[in-house]
Amino acid sequence: MIENSIIESNASATSSSVDNIVLALDGESIILKNPSISAEYDLPDEDQSGQSSSTNSSEKGIKPKKLNISGLIEYSTPDRLSRLIELSYQTENGGAKKLYRVANATANVINLREAVFSGKVSVSPHSTLLAWQISFTLSERKSVPEKRETRARERAQENGDETVDAVGEEMPEETAEKEERSWFEENILAPVNDALG
């Protein structure tokens, strides 16, 4: 009991330095103590060499990126835990999992913009602190490769191409460039550039 009181008083004394807002979902801050966030994604392929020494392999698509998040929520702030659980259960109108805009430095670096809660959400009492140890995973949706594949398939169907699955994942450079242009570049600079030749 004494140990817990000491831990609690120490935690409250250093609260401002330990509470970290490192993640926001749709602009709502997820406040954790001692947060840990890691990213992972798979680039699966299949060996095509058979019995030979060839290094040929077939790609099996770029899989969704994932953010693994863990941290502590103190017993004194149960509303934070309740809200996190509530967010994990949110659904869209059609019943699908709620898609969140993700704001986080690691997510930004790996270009993960939108994600859903995925897999297991774990909540357990910490062994020595007056806090819950929580962990959860956010899995990417509507990734850039996925959007490219979808557009490539739609173009193939519009052109009457029956071999839709054979369409490459790469977007034509012109389309990719157009996507990356801002409104200013698209509507002001591009016409001026074309006029100047």
Rank of each mutant, 00 (worst) to 15 (best):
Q133D: 12
I37A: 04
T55P: 09
K65E: 08
E169V: 10
S5Y: 04
E154R: 12
E114D: 13
E179D: 01
L112F: 00
I37G: 05
R181S: 06
T163P: 10
E3G: 02
D45S: 11
R181K: 11
S36R: 01
T137D: 03
I134L: 03
R141V: 12
Q48V: 08
L138M: 06
E186Y: 11
V102A: 00
I30G: 05
P64N: 08
D79P: 08
E146N: 06
S5A: 11
E185Q: 13
A190W: 14
S82M: 13
S9P: 05
E74Q: 12
V144I: 15
P64D: 06
T175C: 03
L99S: 11
L99Y: 10
N68D: 00
E59F: 02
L84V: 01
I31C: 00
S15M: 14
A11I: 09
A105L: 00
S76N: 12
S17F: 03
S29H: 14
K120H: 06
Q133S: 08
H126K: 02
P78Y: 07
A190I: 14
W132H: 09
P44K: 01
L23M: 03
Y89C: 12
L99I: 07
L196C: 14
A176Q: 02
I7H: 08
I30L: 05
L72Y: 03
S82P: 13
L99W: 04
G119M: 09
S9R: 10
L129E: 15
M171W: 05
E86R: 11
N108M: 09
N108G: 09
K33R: 13
S49F: 04
T91F: 12
K178Q: 10
S122H: 10
D47T: 00
L129K: 08
S182T: 09
L23Q: 02
G95C: 08
A166V: 08
K120D: 02
F136K: 06
S135H: 00
L189C: 11
R101W: 09
P172L: 03
V192C: 14
